[in-house]
């Protein structure tokens, strides 16, 4: 029982970070019908931007984090939208998908060439330590990671549901034509979705990299997991992406502990294939409605 609790909690902690990437993924998908195959690299890169601030510019950690965050939003939000997605017009289709695949190669190779191919330790923002509850060893990092990720998703949901800008974003995503007539600046709302995605990716990066070390290839599995989480939850729901992320995190950990270690990576893949074949709208999604 104690072990189960431990496994469950650390699964939720990783899953909540997957969820951040998955939520960003769905935001961009809804706002611009763009499936970002570089999403995993979007989570890989911000950690390296922080490392650049720390090791190359010799800044203190807080300044490096700020630098990494700001540069991520600029590069992965603004530049990604302007330089990669926008030239394709409203319906990018396959060429856009290919372009984001090329982007993932570009980001990976750039980090590998200019920073290094070795895994780098990344400063943890959270004190290491454990506390014991009835025999279970609970890591402080897991609890705080989970809390931070959940707080971010909750804030985002509040922003989208309760603020004027958030509601305008939803309108722009659901029906750009009508939103435009109602005086909503659709282009600006779309840009916000991209900026939010970049911010979510940066947060996910800062939370997950201390666990796995910073490596140029980190994005390869992360991107797939983020997409799987988004699909399983239902592409059109933020709550869906959250549930999908948590579910994968937990199931992954449970499989690794109780079923098979060598095939743990297979579970999300099988889950993805099953969901796409039998319930393409996702576990929580509706067939048609699109809600940011």
């Amino acid at each position: 029982m104690a072990q189960f609790l431990q496994v469950l909690l650390s699964g939720l902690a990783t899953g909540s970070i997957y969820a951040l990437a998955a939520v960003g993924f769905s935001l961009v998908w809804q706002a611009a019908q763009a499936v970002n195959f570089a999403q995993g690299e979007f989570v890989m890169l911000p950690a390296f931007l922080v490392l650049i601030g720390e090791h190359w510019l010799h800044w203190p950690l807080w300044a490096a984090l700020l630098f990494g965050f700001a540069l991520s939003i600029l590069l992965l939000g603004l530049a990604f939208k302007r330089l990669i997605v926008q030239p394709f017009g409203p319906d990018g289709g396959l060429p856009l998908v290919i372009a984001t695949m090329a982007l993932s190669i570009l980001l990976k190779e750039a980090v590998k060439t200019f920073y290094g191919a070795e895994a780098e330790p990344f400063p943890s923002l959270i004190p290491n330590g454990d506390f014991h509850i009835g025999g279970a060893v609970i890591s402080v990092r897991d609890v705080l990671n989970l809390a931070a990720a959940l707080a971010v998703v909750m804030l985002l949901t509040l922003f989208l549901d309760r603020t004027k800008t958030g509601r305008q974003m939803q309108a722009a995503a659901q029906n750009p034509g009508v939103a435009e007539i109602l005086g909503i600046d659709v282009a600006r709302m779309t840009l916000y979705a991209f900026l939010l995605n970049a911010a979510l990716a940066a947060v996910a990066s800062f939370l997950i990299t201390p666990v796995y070390l910073a490596k140029f290839s980190n994005g390869e599995s992360l991107g797939l997991v983020a997409f799987i989480a988004a699909i399983i939850g239902g592409f059109n729901r933020i709550r869906g992406a959250l549930v999908g992320g948590l579910l994968i995190g937990v199931l992954d950990n449970l499989t690794a502990t109780y079923v098979t270690l060598s095939y743990r990576a297979a579970l999300p893949l099988v889950l993805l294939i099953a969901v796409i074949l039998w319930r393409p709208q996702g576990l929580l999604g509706d067939a048609e409605a699109r809600i940011v």
């Binding site: 499936v35 998908v97 797939l224 799987i228 699909i231 990576a265 993805l272 294939i273």
Partner: peptide, 15 residues
């Protein structure tokens, strides 16, 4: 399924 869904199904198969 089509498009990116299929892309990810086949990607999952490769994995």
């Amino acid at each position: 399924v089509r498009g990116h869904y299929l892309a990810f199904v086949t990607l999952a198969f490769n994995s």
